[in-house]
Design a protein around this nucleic acid. Sequence first.
RNA 1: GGACGUUUAGCUCAGUUGGUUAGAGCGUUCGAUUCACAUUCGAAAGGUCGCAGGUUCGAAUCCUGCAACGUCCACCA
Length: 894
Amino acid sequence: MDYNDLPKAYEAKDVEKDIFQVWEESGFFDPDKLPERNQNGEPYCIVLPPPNRTGTLHMGHAKMLAVEDLLIRFYRMQGRKTYWIPGTDHAAISTQVKVEQILIKQGMKDPRRELGREKFLEEVKKFAQQSRDTIVSQCKAMGASMDWNREKYTLDEDRNKAVNHMFKMMYEDGLIERGFRVVNWDPQFKTTLSDDEVLHKETQAELVTFKYDQDFPIAISTTRAETKFGDTAVAVHPDDERYKSFVGQTLTANYCGKQITVKIIADKEVDPNFGTGALGVTPAHSMIDSDMAERHSLPMVQVIGQDACMTVEAGEGFAGLRTIEARAKAIKMLEENSCLIKKETVAQNLMIAERGGETVEQLPMRQWFVRVNKPFKLRQNTLAKWKQGDEATLKELMRHTVQSGQTRILPESFQKIYFHWIDNLRDWCISRQIWFGHQIPVWYKENDVYVGAESPGEGWDRDPDTLDTWFSSGMWTFSTLGWPDTASIDEKGNLIKTGELAAYHPTNVLETGYDILFFWVARMILMSAYALGEVPFQDSYLHGLVRDDQGRKMSKSLGNILDPLDLIPKYGTDAVRLSLVMGSSPGLDQKLSEEKIKDFRNFTNKLWNISRFVLQSTSQTTVEEADRQWAGGRTLSDNWILSRFYHVQNKVTALIKDYQLSQAGELLRDFTWSDLADWYLEISKIEKNKDAVLWHILPRLLKLWHPFMPFVTEYIWKVGKLGSEQLLVSEWPAGEFADQEAEKTFEKIKILITDLRRLRSEQNVEPVKFVEFAVVADEAGRQVIEANLEVIKHLSRAENITFADKIDDGWPVTVSGSMTIGLNLAGAVDVEAEKIKLQKEMEDLIPYIESTEKKLSNSEFTAKAPEKVVQGMQDKLEEAKNKLSAIQQRLKTL
RNA sequence: GGACGUUUAGCUCAGUUGGUUAGAGCGUUCGAUUCACAUUCGAAAGGUCGCAGGUUCGAAUCCUGCAACGUCCACCA
């Protein structure tokens, strides 16, 4: 191929599809088809947080894919046996709600009733399939190197088997229990919700203070007068003198036409300073009250039904009213009966459903729960702390994994949030009254209950409910690795893993957004610790949310959504990926703008042109040949760039291992753009015989960039014929080459050239015809300058440079670089401007010198500070002093 | 109410056990440009590191208090 035919600009959209196809067809996304080097390597496994089948992927997903693909590609090149497990999530309620909304838009009134369970589910499945196809193609467009032939689905057969198995295990251990308890009820979608699916929205509410009837001795306050029909107690603080005499009594009252019986109880939870200090306890419609009722063995009276309307248990004339109507009516009646004492407006948090946004009611219902505080006998030795047969609770398991460091939550600040969540965790309601999901594997026949996937026989009816979507997601790290078939427990309680579970579990890292720490990360820890006795992943690395350029959440209503599918054809996948990885810190939200993506597009093009330059203007050589040559005849700049490169290479490797991806990328970019392109390539136009060094660096640089920008690097690798294998599976570069002397000396040359450029620019001496140097400090510096004279001329565009033996008082300009060089720039120079410039430099230098001298003369400082710091300061002080004297000398002559 | 996070140049953000004159990109201003790249190159300007104390030889970094913004949890009925 003639390299001169390569296009001037890298056009991502022309090449990405083909490159991805070659990758895919190579089979290297499949851990069992990797090259031998990887086959023999240590496994490295990430499970893809399965995207919900609710539509298309957004920027958050794109970020997740960019980060995980970066890690997978890095470790693949490091020789690990990489397995990135792809899959999607059925997302139970979200998907069902979405399909219902679509069907309603199409004209149906109540799709579920009109279609029936089977036909409705068909519609949902059809939608889920379409969504799945979109998701897969989007993942591929992002360059994600996972093997979709190994695709898993949270609702497929294998996962169903695992779910049923888990349910049965937990049921047998007494951890899953059916109970009649207060749950969160979404009247809109007619299903229960877990605590995490309920949001709180601040609203204005009317707080009324009243007595149940005129004869009742104690006044209470409420914002929900309609629930007071269900009161079975009035609670006061045990130390509250006002009510002490009532405690223990059982009183009756007529509340808005209904006879109620309330016991006066004392409970520490009651705040004596709020309102009247007495609290009407409604066990059926408040979790707090329900807990209190349990402590005091109070009866439960349900006055609100599943339709969010009053039941017959409410007062006469109330049954059938909506809660808001009933509330107004009750308050009016209290007013009429002179029972109302006070009305005030307070800020109150209303419970609303995460999906749908409707008000959530708390109702008592018969549901299935995972009990998190109940001790149970462990089936196996667990987490190096418990032995088979020991007792523990699920909460203890969840706490211990993180506390002991067996799984790390990164960044660490999220650990505190995790512990706090665990401390407040209640039993997890797992049954849902929706159709799309894993049906609960429980059968009923009159009062008998059977747990299992198959019907035990005639006359048994299966529970129609499904499981919370997070029940199946929680098992994702091991349900995808063949569990339960791949795990067993020996008689000593040791876990015996086989097959993929043995190879890949615990997985290495779970990478996801911090917004699902509780929903998912915590539940994975729970499930894995319970079922296997080990952690699901060594690290969980939480990334921040992607926001718009003003820091707002991306949303349809704001119209500020950036869609990866629009941006990829426009700027290239590599640019999109870079913009998501760079300039962001773990766990912190990140602002993204199209401008930023454009900047990274420019960088991909820069890398393209750097490579094109090397291919076109150096004699074609093989990498092996280059490696043989580059040891001979190197110049200062060669040693400098090689030393810099190896420094960057090793630093980047360490940073990626430490998840400091943004810093790794920035270091690489600075090296590539400034050191390599702006300095070294420019030098190569003057100093010849750079071929070997360039051919040494180029392939290694492409390797370092590959996890960040897989497409452009693979493409250059291919057109430059840089290796017989694909870059995808090439070996990550390693090695040492340090020449600190060269680095230091070259930095001085850089300063000198910068001085020349600045003079040209500021003094407008154009073109620079003649420059004289005098090395006043050391002869070595002079030799270096002489040796690099051509380079200095070229880069500073000074046409004629000669040496003087010493600085002449008559020179119009003197600049002191760090090599301590007098510089005489012939030509017209603005003396006044130069004076001002030098004055200012002096003003900066003098206080610095003074304070540094003071510091260095402080014996406490020199005794305690590291030697490296002291030495560095002394060197810099020396330099500054030399510079100062040069400036002073110069000012005298001006 | 409780907790967590953020606050560094006009903007977006680095700054890893406290240590050499606080960095980068974008933007701005000035200048260059047949020579890989205008998706380019060079130079300059721009910061009392949110505020107030404290610890230390030394603080953007550690401690205390305060403020602003943001997020999560709880739900006082």
